[in-house]
């Protein structure tokens, strides 16, 4: 017995075309990545002479092994992981703790305090004053310079505040009637039911900390503190035409081969590539959080 309604042919063709176009453009986006992947698994001579397309030529694991064994790469990788993990945990904590009282409109002066936060979102000192601030706090060449200033992102704070506001007030009232303290309400009620917003915000922060290269470039001069993104940027820019023109010859003689550059990109992309699909649903949810107020 066929229960489903038969679709007219025209609609079937339409749906089919939509799928083909979407899959096609999806694959198109994948091409550059596959090319880099193929290069990272190819011999250097094949890359130089432009033989490598989507499949490796003269397959070799040498490039990838070289990158994995490279002490500087390992170090940069660990630094990035450290900054991302500690930074995201800290940032979520601080954001959550600041957003909660801001969602309680009946507190005296809370609007003014909120305005102070929003002010920093719209206006800031700019590059040089921020640099001087970090320097005078003696945070130069210290990983805290990457974490501390980013602990509260006002946009994320507002997201969280809106979410708290959307919680029904009666929930807390009933807990109060049962004799729960304020701390108890936060720990036993608010935090458990805020899991989605916590997941979203920590993803936002994690992506920020993982991909941040500008601040490390400014604040870290000690080569052993270099995070992965900065390391990657240096490696990739090495062979740019501008660099080839300006670098002195000894630097050019020490250029790392194309295969190793590509392998570095691949190896450093893999971790975030593994995390993304699992967190993607929170990402999509996150955009909607706080957008509709009940």
């Amino acid at each position: 017995m066929e229960h489903s309604i038969k679709r007219p042919w025209s609609e079937k063709i339409y749906i089919g075309a939509v799928y083909v176009i979407l899959i096609g453009s999806g694959i198109l986006c994948l091409f550059p990545f596959l090319n880099v992947l193929a290069k990272s698994l190819s011999a250097n001579w094949a890359i130089i002479s432009g033989k490598v397309g989507l499949l490796p030529v003269a397959f070799t694991m040498e490039n990838v092994m070289f990158v994995l064994r490279d002490r500087l790469f390992q170090n940069a990788f660990l630094i990035s992981v450290f900054v991302t993990v500690v930074g995201s945990l800290g940032a979520v904590l601080f954001t959550a703790v600041s957003a909660y009282p801001l969602s309680k409109k009946h507190l005296p002066g809370i609007k003014f305090i909120l305005l102070l936060y929003i002010f920093t979102m719209l206006f800031n000192g700019g590059l040089v004053p921020t640099y001087l601030l970090i320097k005078n706090l003696h945070l130069m060449d210290n990983l805290a310079s990457l974490i501390l200033p980013a602990l509260i992102n006002v946009f994320n704070l507002l997201l969280m505040k809106n979410y708290y506001e959307s919680l029904p007030e009666s929930l807390e009232e009933s807990a109060k009637l049962d004799g729960a303290s304020n701390l108890r309400i936060v720990l036993s009620i608010v935090i458990p039911i805020s899991a989605p917003v916590f997941a979203t915000i920590s993803l936002f922060y994690a992506v920020y900390f993982w991909s941040n290269w500008f601040h490390p470039m400014l604040y870290l001069n000690d080569p052993s503190l270099k995070p992965l993104q900065l390391y990657l940027r240096d490696i990739i820019l090495q062979a740019s035409d501008e660099n080839l023109l300006n670098q002195d010859i000894d630097a050019l003689l020490n250029l790392s081969p194309e295969g190793i550059r590509n392998a570095t990109i691949i190896v450093s992309t893999i971790p975030i590539l593994l995390v993304y699909p699992m967190l993607q649903k929170y990402f999509i949810k996150g955009i909607l959080i706080g957008s509709v107020k009940g």
Binding site: N44, W45, I48, I249, L252, P257
Partner: peptide, 14 residues
């Protein structure tokens, strides 16, 4: 001339 080592390997293979 600093590019020659890379070129040399590639062209000799091809």
């Amino acid at each position: 001339w600093s590019s020659i080592p890379g070129y040399d390997e590639a062209i000799k293979k091809n």
